[in-house]
């Protein structure tokens, strides 16, 4: 599976498709951090929200780089299950790379402050919470992108529709007061939690929520790919 993951990442990088989502993410983060300095936890919570659709789009691009014929060849050579998991793994690794850029970026442009407010969280705790918030966003974003990929949707139009609905839905249905917040991953809920006093049970609940949502969507993704084979 390592060879397949490497081939997909190489294809993604060599075609230059990695540039567009990275630039889009940097522009979005630049606008986000343009308003002044914020505490790391708060800033990273919002950064994860901004990054969610970008990571989903990046995943779709990565999975769509490979021609359909090559995907079928990979299924024959490496096995159907490995081919599917390798795509998700490659997208996950690419997403982690973008997350690292997003975590470093605000320090380069002065978007966050290292000055701790009275009663506030330390910088280290803020960074840890920021990493946690981004890691919660990665699996749902990768799975949304995978659902929008050509292997699932079969056409560019449907793929864009899935991506747009998923991205907008995660934000709109995640707003406080939403009747069905559990329909979407807890991206907005996590951002809200990082701005307030985050307790351990809340952190555990949000983590389980993201894991459960990802597990359900992963099962749907694998079932859909299997039914289209």
């Amino acid at each position: 599976m390592t060879a397949l993951v490497r081939l997909r990442l190489a294809g993604f990088l060599r075609t230059g498709r990695a540039v567009a989502p990275l630039l889009a993410g940097l522009v979005a983060l630049g606008i986000l951090y343009g308003g002044g300095r914020a505490q790391p936890a708060e800033a990273y919570g919002v950064s994860a929200v901004v990054l969610f659709p970008v990571l989903a789009w990046q995943t779709k691009l990565l999975l769509d780089v490979e021609p359909d014929g090559q995907r079928r060849l990979a299924q024959v050579v490496a096995g159907v299950r490995r081919e599917r998991w390798a795509g998700l793994l490659a997208a996950g690794l690419a997403a982690l790379g973008t997350v690292v850029v997003a975590l470093v970026f605000p320090w380069l442009v002065g978007g966050v402050t290292a000055v701790v407010e009275p009663g506030g969280r330390s910088v280290a705790v803020g960074i840890v919470l920021g990493i946690w918030a981004h890691l919660l966003a990665v699996p749902p974003a990768v799975l949304l992108g995978a659902l929008a990929s050509r292997a699932c949707t079969g056409s560019a139009g449907y793929g864009v529709a899935v991506l747009a609905l998923g991205g907008v839905g995660a934000i709109v249905l995640g707003l406080s007061g939403s009747a069905v917040p559990w329909l979407v991953p807890p991206i907005m809920a996590t951002a809200r939690a990082t701005t307030g006093a985050l307790t351990a049970p809340t952190a555990a609940l949000l983590t389980c929520w993201a894991a459960a949502w990802s597990a359900v969507v992963l099962a749907g993704y694998l079932w859909w790919r299997r039914s289209r084979a």
Partner: peptide, 10 residues
């Protein structure tokens, strides 16, 4: 395959 997927950056 009948058509080799040559549209790849390798």
């Amino acid at each position: 395959p009948e058509r080799f997927p040559a549209d790849q950056p390798f």
